[in-house]
């Protein structure tokens, strides 16, 4: 047997292609939320102990650990709590750069959702700015987050910081 060993120059990479399909259960709870989007309604869940409203709905409050069985509608408009201006492309997203990704606290909700702000210059977006959802037209809404195309300024006066400080 030789003791010289295999070639000195090693193979440098081993490729592996992964094929991992998934099919997520939405669950009865989330289905109600998603179905409501078809009717241009955003549902939140109300904590049975503190009364806080979570959007999208969750079955239990992480904070109080109490169930949030009650689903209630919140407004499709609210206030920009924080935001950032995106200048780098994201794979699989074709929005024209730069654009604004914002945290929006909907009226009636105690936590914010993430939202795309359009129909204004990025430089004009500010904390406290009032915005509203722009929905897909009737007949095109599928019961998914994509039923809201984006949010846009309402032109209302800005909300004072103190009014959304607890929802940052």
């Amino acid at each position: 047997m030789s003791t010289s060993g295999p070639p000195k120059e090693p193979v440098k990479y081993v490729e592996k292609q992964l094929h991992l399909p998934y099919c997520y259960v939405a669950g009865d709870y989330k289905v109600r939320y998603l179905a409501a989007l078809k009717d241009k309604t955003i549902l939140g869940s109300k904590c049975s102990r503190t009364g806080k409203v979570f959007v999208p709905p969750i079955v239990a409050s992480p904070e109080s650990f109490a169930p949030c069985d009650e689903l209630i509608p919140v407004a499709d408009r609210g206030v920009v709590t924080t935001f950032c201006i995106v200048n780098i492309p994201v794979i699989g997203r074709s929005i024209e750069l730069p654009y604004v990704a914002a945290s929006v606290a909907l009226d009636g909700a105690d936590i914010s959702i993430y939202a795309l702000i359009q129909e204004c210059a990025p430089a004009d977006v500010r904390m406290g700015m009032r915005v509203e959802a722009v929905w897909k037209p009737d007949g095109e809404r599928q019961g998914s987050h994509e039923d809201i195309i984006h949010f846009r300024p309402t032109g209302e006066p800005d909300a004072p910081l103190a009014s959304f400080m607890h929802r940052l």
């Binding site: 060993g5 295999p6 070639p7 000195k8 120059e9 090693p10 193979v11 440098k12 081993v14």
Partner: peptide
């Protein structure tokens, strides 16, 4: 080590331990 073992398979059709 793994790379040299694999090079042995690829280039020489030899198996090294």
């Amino acid at each position: 080590m793994i790379g040299r073992f694999l090079a042995g398979l690829k280039e020489d059709k030899r198996i090294w331990g």
